[in-house]
Nucleic acid binder design. Sequence first.
DNA 1: AAGGGAAGCAACCGCAGAGAG
DNA 2: TCTCTCTGCGGTTGCTTCCCT
Length: 244
Amino acid sequence: MGRSPCCEKAHTNKGAWTKEEDDRLIAYIRAHGEGCWRSLPKAAGLLRCGKSCRLRWINYLRPDLKRGNFTQQEDELIIKLHSLLGNKWSLIAGRLPGRTDNEIKNYWNTHIRRKLVSRGIDPTSHKPINNIIQPQEQEQEEEEEEEKKIKTSVLNKQEEEVLEEEERCPDLNLDLRISPPPHQEPFKTGASTLCFVCSTLGGKACNCNEQAAGAGSIIISGSGSRTNSGYDFLALDYRSLQMK
DNA sequence: AAGGGAAGCAACCGCAGAGAG
DNA sequence: TCTCTCTGCGGTTGCTTCCCT
């Protein structure tokens, strides 16, 4: 039977968006809010596919987007999050206010990947590139793989994912739920904090101290030491993170 | 100045998951 | 429980700009 197309391709524009199209989309969303992307183009008088409108809004037109270069701190945060989450760009973007998954994905592929390689780190595994596996280690890895197979065969998919994540980062609490934050006060260890409410990063005065304590903060220290995953210069307090 | 390659980024495509009926 | 629709995500493509020769 096949999948039905998301829109009438014959009558839709493709490629770069014009100023007029942008204006129409902005005006429509301001008046009616986000959502119903399928019907939005027709209602807004746009010859675009709903998906295209959604993408344009989310990646480019949203008023809360932070434009401009990534900061060093954002860089390191992306690397750290990528080492924990992999190519889960939307999750990573959720930790970087004002940045989109597409933007982070592009930035990763064009800048960070190269940066890691030049540091001698494999951007996929976050391990040193010249980490040659010795026969004994390989045997051990195979054993672990076998054990994992047995383990995962008796777990459902959700449990499996949580287990995998915990194995990769034992400190990461993935018991994600909407609940009062574990810390009523942001850490004050002389390190700088990232506030997810007002997007303040790098030790600047936070606009919303009270809310920030409830929204989850990332503590960024400058120790610069290395762990197995390669980066320990970000001492993240993942337990205070909450899903968007 | 012009051409070609590399880099950067916006946008598209196809798939998967969630939810409704 | 199944089917269908809609939305969101990640991978990929292709256009534009920059830089080097």
